[in-house]
Amino acid sequence: MKTSPASLRLYAAFILLTVVTALIGSTLTAPAIRLFGVDGVLLVALGGLGIWLAPRTGFADLLDARVSGWQRFGRPLLIGLGFGLADLLMYKLVMHPQPVTSLTPFMQPFPYSILLYGSGALYTDCLYRLIPIPLLMWLIGRFLLHDQKNERLFWVLAGLTSLVEPLEQLITDSPGLIIYSFGTGYAMNLLQAIFFRRYGFLAGLSIRLGHYALWHVGFGLAVELRLGV
């Protein structure tokens, strides 16, 4: 199976989004603005290799006609919102029960936050899934296993790559938070890999977008509007 031209055009639009994010961010003067740099744009551009390799290594194409809108967007967005709600409750009930009166490091001014965390979701999913998993499946499958779509190889790679982000962002304040931070981080990353495999890159990405929409964008907007959260 080959990558459809429509999928390549859509992914080109994603690369353009990261360019727009970088350009707009560079014009902002508010304090503590997080910028999406050239390195981020280049990594997302390199993700085009993953888009090309994915159907050749057993993943659904980005716009696979056999995948429904519910599979590609609906269910994964709800799952992502569930992870975002869990993080929000943990933060407000356990880590920071007092009202948040200013933007924290994981928030950015609205509406720039939409661009930054949309591009950030692309960057993160390219780094942990879109590039390494199809590329390693193609290399190992082609030259060692002689099976580029090997299902066991996918599960090994999905399991290993899903460890990276939760270990990098582990909250070590207490044993309970360590378990929560690692458990939810690993579960979300593994689900993203599974949805990517079955329903295409947009499905895995939608999980992260659902999480970011509530945790980063929505929470930050509530703080800016001084809703007493």
Results as ranks from 00 to 15, higher is better:
residue 136 L to H: 07
residue 184 T to S: 10
residue 142 R to L: 10
residue 113 S to V: 02
residue 196 F to H: 11
residue 139 L to S: 11
residue 97 P to G: 11
residue 221 L to Y: 11
residue 214 L to G: 02
residue 189 N to F: 08
residue 197 R to I: 04
residue 128 Y to L: 15
residue 110 F to M: 01
residue 106 F to H: 10
residue 176 G to M: 09
residue 102 S to N: 09
residue 115 L to H: 02
residue 83 F to R: 03
residue 120 G to S: 09
residue 120 G to V: 05
residue 148 Q to T: 14
residue 149 K to A: 15
residue 85 L to T: 12
residue 117 Y to L: 02
residue 161 T to L: 14
residue 98 Q to S: 14
residue 142 R to T: 12
residue 80 G to R: 10
residue 175 P to D: 12
residue 94 V to A: 13
residue 218 G to L: 12
residue 102 S to E: 15
residue 135 L to G: 07
residue 109 P to I: 08
residue 187 A to C: 04
residue 93 L to Q: 11
residue 154 F to N: 15
residue 195 F to A: 04
residue 105 P to F: 07
residue 167 L to P: 01
residue 166 P to H: 07
residue 166 P to T: 07
residue 100 V to M: 10
residue 90 M to G: 05
residue 88 L to S: 08
residue 96 H to Q: 14
residue 219 F to T: 09
residue 188 M to Q: 14
residue 175 P to E: 05
residue 88 L to P: 02
residue 138 W to G: 00
residue 105 P to W: 01
residue 124 T to Y: 00
residue 90 M to S: 06
residue 88 L to V: 04
residue 136 L to N: 09
residue 217 V to M: 14
residue 183 G to Y: 15
residue 173 D to F: 12
residue 119 S to Q: 07
residue 91 Y to N: 11
residue 221 L to R: 08
residue 132 P to W: 01
residue 95 M to P: 00
residue 218 G to N: 13
residue 159 G to D: 03
residue 141 G to L: 03
residue 84 G to S: 01
residue 203 A to K: 04
residue 165 E to Y: 13
residue 148 Q to A: 14
residue 218 G to E: 13
residue 97 P to V: 10
residue 92 K to L: 14
residue 117 Y to R: 01
residue 165 E to K: 15
residue 189 N to W: 03
residue 172 T to I: 14
residue 152 R to V: 14
residue 167 L to F: 14
residue 195 F to T: 01
residue 97 P to F: 06
residue 97 P to H: 06
residue 212 Y to L: 10
residue 142 R to Q: 13
residue 207 I to Q: 07
residue 120 G to F: 03
residue 165 E to I: 06
residue 178 I to L: 13
residue 157 L to K: 08
residue 173 D to G: 05
residue 162 S to L: 03
residue 81 L to V: 13
residue 105 P to Q: 06
residue 163 L to Y: 02
residue 148 Q to W: 06
residue 147 D to M: 03
residue 109 P to C: 00
residue 117 Y to E: 07
residue 140 I to N: 12
residue 209 L to E: 09
